[in-house]
């Protein structure tokens, strides 16, 4: 019984970690290639979720909704890159923080203005709802399993894109030496727009996938954004591999800590105090993890120099 519970929670942690990876991959790519810290990444997550909810409402198709989330977030990302972000690449981090914070205000209030303050709901389609029985007799929601599979597939595709394609070569070259690749005749500004739109599309997809489990509302991207920051700080900024490892670490730590810390404390003290102390500590666990990683490796597990 308790083994099944543990396995279930490990799967939940994995699902959370995979979603975090989709967010963190875009952030770390944008930072690695363009040297930009983008606080508005969570806004693109929100754009994806709202686009999916709106399209699912009109057409009833979940697949179309996912495609819409990718397209809308990529389009919003490209638009923002061309109009604003492009001017920030050779600015200092303070300017980048402020400008992207301003973008959050514009995106959040703009979405509130368009869709209202009440949350929207995106339903899991019939063919993905209900539980599925895994080997070992574990009952697990099919939709969450599908999220893990989709996330891992997208992750594998991303690794393939970076390691094996011409665009990937350009992206890696851009990380290593921006001036050189421009000198070699690659249209660097087009590459930047592409990378930014790619990161945005991944965030939008994550927003749509999570939107079907939670509700779709203004500000939904911000908690995830901050967790994605924790992920790339742990993994090392600029490293896709680091983002994957960091995302799974954070996803598992947060989920397992939230479930098992209160139970652990319940062995030592009375239930009410254990629940409250356990919950408080569990909410801080990933930050403690981050602090521990930084004490040992200030530039993250897979990071080069900051």
């Amino acid at each position: 019984m308790s083994l099944i519970l543990i396995l279930e929670q490990v799967l939940n942690g994995l699902q959370f970690g995979v979603m975090l990876f989709l967010m963190a991959a875009g952030l770390t790519l944008v930072f690695g290639v363009m040297g930009l810290i983008n606080l508005a990444h969570g806004a693109l997550y929100m754009v994806g979720a709202f686009a999916a909810a709106a399209v699912a409402g009109w057409t009833g198709s979940f697949v179309l909704a996912l495609i819409a989330s990718l397209a809308a977030a990529a389009a919003a990302g490209a638009l923002v890159e061309v109009t604003v972000i492009r001017r920030l690449y050779d600015r200092d981090h303070l300017d980048q923080v402020l400008a992207t914070f301003a973008l959050i205000l514009i995106f959040s209030e703009g979405t509130r203005w368009l869709f209202g303050s009440f949350p929207l709901f995106l339903d899991v389609p019939d063919y993905l709802s209900g539980p599925v029985t895994l080997p070992g007799g574990i009952q697990y929601p099919l939709y969450r399993l599908a999220i893990i599979v989709i996330g891992l597939m997208v992750g594998a595709g991303l690794f393939w894109l970076i390691a094996r394609t011409r665009i990937g070569v350009q992206i890696r070259a851009g990380e290593a030496d921006r001036e050189m690749i421009a000198a070699l005749g690659v249209d660097i500004s087009k590459l930047y727009t592409l990378v930014f739109a790619l990161g945005a599309a991944l965030a939008g997809l994550a927003g749509a996938l999570v939107g079907a489990i939670q509700s779709v509302q203004v500000g939904m991207g911000e908690p995830v954004l901050i967790l994605a920051f924790v992920v790339i700080v742990i993994g090392g900024i600029g490293s896709i591999k680091g983002a994957l490892v960091g995302a799974l670490l954070v996803g598992l730590t947060d989920t397992l800590g939230g479930v098992f810390l209160p139970r652990l404390f319940a062995l030592l003290m009375e239930p009410a105090a254990a629940a409250s102390l356990g919950a408080s500590l569990a909410s801080m666990l990933i930050y403690i993890l981050m602090a521990a990683v930084l004490l040992v490796r200030p530039s993250g597990l897979f990071g080069g120099s900051a």
Binding site: H93, F229, V230, I232, M284, Y287, P298, S299, G300, A306
Partner: peptide, 22 residues
């Protein structure tokens, strides 16, 4: 302060959120 630049921004942000959730 063991870190600098963009790491510093993100870490101060993360510690702030830690207290928020606490």
């Amino acid at each position: 302060l063991r870190t600098s630049g963009v790491y510093f921004i993100m870490i101060t942000l993360a510690f702030g959120q830690m207290l928020y959730y606490f």
